[in-house]
Design a protein around this nucleic acid. Structure first.
Lengths: 196, 196
DNA sequence: TTTAAGTGATACACAGCTGTTGCAGTTAAC
DNA sequence: GTTAACTGCAACAGCTGTGTATCACTTAAA
């Protein structure tokens, strides 16, 4: 949403918008209230440049959530929900999320006020997640029925697992795989058995 | 921590500090960045008065967390961990938390930066929680071993359940008891069975 | 190589929150 | 009933972050 009406951006400018988005994701994940100054610094640019690429802080946040949304969607597509059995799909989806190093929490915290849907995710992503849980339920992996509830528990567990140090005993017990720990925990939490 | 070195406060002043703390808990739960102006307004007082009772925003937050800590501790004591079997203890503890209408999340978010322990809770409360989970583990209710992991999942689930509307299907399925849903979910998440 | 686009640096206005002070009016405490 | 404490109101200074504008310099693009 940076600039889509006027002319084409110069190559370096476009590269800088990407830099800013990357830096913003990183910095805001650590501190959701970080100033544009710090974000620009992390991107190796000046605050003025940040303002040139994004009209306002608001605009930057929107672009960031849009990018996040795209990644969620791509993860949902890559996990091939329609063909594979649900639990491996769920695991694969979670693995992709961790590979993308997506830190969602800052979005949840800040976007909830102005976003129309309360999760901070786009309706399409919510819908995709809902399908995953619906398939898990059909397969008997979980018993929980509420879409909001399933999604909320899932995101919360992802967040907790992200906080975990690499040598945490429960993480080691899951073979060192954060995604595996997430799946076990969420499936258990939502009324299934933690054994596959 | 309001004023403990000088003289005794006048009755109305002391009452106002309590009002401020109550209002702060309520307002900050909804918006962790709310200004002292709004907090004072919610307490029916002026911002100046807020500053008279608490030297700084920092001091107010500290007093608030201390109060929160006291309530956690009292809940831990009331749940009689030593005598009763662990799962009812866990349920009772959670019930007390909900009765107290404690909204912990804002503390987690804001205190983590300056607090020495990463959970934002005092060491004594952390220790008490750890004991609860240790007893649950001994009784075979859960299999998870990490104290941080158990506590993190517990607080996250409590937060999620708090967000749930009263008519959420999964809440109804738990008999309408938020505490019951928390216990089922946490026990399941941490490697136990959701059936008592 | 020429040109237009982009950046860095700097300065400025503006808004919101914090913390402090002074004063007049009210209220608890003795 | 008197006194000391407390509050409301208002004003002030200070800080931080945002958003805008200008100018000289650098760089991609034709």
């Amino acid at each position: 949403m940076a600039e889509t009406g006027t002319r084409r951006l110069r190559a370096d400018a476009e590269q800088n918008t990407a830099r800013i988005l990357t830096a913003a994701a990183e910095v805001l994940a650590a501190d959701p209230l970080a100033s544009l100054e710090r974000i620009g610094e992390a991107a190796g640019l000046t605050r003025a440049t940040v303002h040139r690429r994004f009209a306002s802080r608001q605009a930057l946040l929107e672009a960031l959530t849009e990018q996040l949304d795209q990644r969620y969607l791509s993860a949902l597509e890559q996990s091939r929900m329609d063909t594979a059995p649900p639990r491996p799909v769920f695991l694969r989806l979670t693995e992709i999320l961790f590979e993308l190093k997506v830190s969602h929490r800052f979005a949840m915290e800040l976007m909830s006020a102005k976003s129309d849907c309360r999760s901070g995710l786009s309706p399409r992503v919510e819908e995709g997640l809902e399908q995953v849980f619906a398939r898990l339920r059909s397969a008997g992996d979980i018993t929980a029925t509420g879409a909001d509830w399933c999604r909320g528990v899932y995101l919360a567990v992802v967040h907790e697992v992200t906080q975990l140090p690499p040598d945490a005993p429960d993480l080691v017990a899951a073979g060192g795989s954060r995604a595996e720990l997430v799946v076990r925990t969420v499936v258990g939490a939502l009324g299934g058995t933690s054994q596959p």
